[in-house]
Simulated assay, not measured.
Amino acid sequence: MSDTTHEPVPSTTNVWQSFADRFGDSLQALARALTGGTQKPPRFLKSLLSGTFGGHPLHPAITDIPIGAWTLTAILDIIWLAAPASNSWAARGALVGAIVGLIAALGALFTGLADWSDTYGAERTVGFYHGLLNTAAFLLYLVSLILRLLSPLNESIAAAVLGFIGFVAILVAGYLGGDMVFVKGTNVNHTAWEAAGEDFEPVLPASNIEEGHLYRVTVAGVPVVLLRRGEQYYAISATCPHAGGPLDEGTLDGDVVECPWHGSRFCVRDGRVLTGPATVPAPRYAVRVRNGQVELRRLGGH
């Protein structure tokens, strides 16, 4: 009996992963450049596309518009195909839906690129295919629109078929987008479930705290970053709400700390977000000095 060595057969998952990885680095570099991620603070464009100024990620809010418009387009196309002679109004309505969806999809494209440019690992791979399918849907609806405009009374069976294919693409893309958020936690507030103790907890002797240095301490099991300015002390969560980066390892500029992972900037005095991609403030902590000890307690809300 002879020994036979078998090479492992690559799984489908590994094939998809390697395909995304081959293009991921280059595409992310391009995405960062296009969405302002490579600019110096305050990175206004990055913050705008991330939704920082509104306190909520912008991409999921915008995606509702093209999905709704193209859903209406598909319904109207079905109505028109059921009775073309008497339902020409439905074909014209489908044309309007296709146009609205395409315009809104441009906003979804750039906000999605801004979010995806900060992902890595499995979430980056899923995001890659999410974006690929949405891009395919955009192109399909664009060709569909052109065919509608070139057809008498905006009626085209080929345009409707392309729209149906594009609609399937956005449904699958939407499923992948949900997987990124609900399974992999992309763009979920990483401080939402941090514990909050009811009482002040001593963390460090006041004599051990130098001015202008970031100190990582623990309060109710939660990492907190502490800063001293003169006789004043400030403390916020040490976890960046955007992706969980360690703010205590970030760069301090005055009273502003920059996350070392994706460059979100927070005011240590009150936890405000000054620069995206973060959209929610860092939780604040009340600070007092008692018996030579600095004591902290999380404030209610953010």
Results as ranks from 00 to 15, higher is better:
residue 225 V to Q: 10
residue 233 Y to I: 03
residue 223 P to M: 10
residue 260 P to H: 11
residue 198 E to I: 01
residue 230 G to R: 01
residue 200 F to A: 09
residue 239 T to W: 03
residue 221 G to E: 06
residue 222 V to P: 02
residue 193 W to L: 13
residue 258 E to A: 03
residue 233 Y to V: 01
residue 223 P to Y: 05
residue 243 A to P: 00
residue 185 G to A: 12
residue 196 A to T: 08
residue 184 K to V: 00
residue 224 V to T: 08
residue 181 V to C: 01
residue 173 A to T: 02
residue 227 L to M: 05
residue 260 P to D: 10
residue 195 A to M: 00
residue 250 G to E: 05
residue 237 S to A: 14
residue 226 L to K: 02
residue 190 H to R: 15
residue 234 Y to M: 08
residue 228 R to Q: 14
residue 200 F to H: 14
residue 234 Y to I: 02
residue 182 F to V: 00
residue 222 V to L: 04
residue 185 G to Q: 09
residue 177 G to A: 09
residue 205 P to Y: 11
residue 244 G to A: 08
residue 220 A to F: 00
residue 180 M to R: 10
residue 175 Y to M: 01
residue 206 A to F: 08
residue 177 G to V: 06
residue 234 Y to C: 02
residue 211 E to S: 14
residue 249 E to Q: 15
residue 249 E to I: 04
residue 195 A to N: 07
residue 187 N to P: 00
residue 254 G to H: 06
residue 212 G to A: 11
residue 246 P to Q: 14
residue 186 T to V: 15
residue 215 Y to P: 04
residue 259 C to R: 02
residue 200 F to M: 09
residue 197 G to K: 14
residue 258 E to L: 01
residue 236 I to P: 01
residue 219 V to K: 06
residue 175 Y to R: 00
residue 226 L to H: 02
residue 241 P to C: 14
residue 225 V to K: 08
residue 240 C to P: 05
residue 254 G to R: 08
residue 193 W to N: 12
residue 174 G to W: 01
residue 226 L to N: 02
residue 179 D to I: 07
residue 255 D to K: 03
residue 245 G to R: 10
residue 248 D to S: 15
residue 194 E to W: 00
residue 189 N to P: 03
residue 204 L to T: 10
residue 239 T to I: 15
residue 218 T to Q: 07
residue 198 E to K: 07
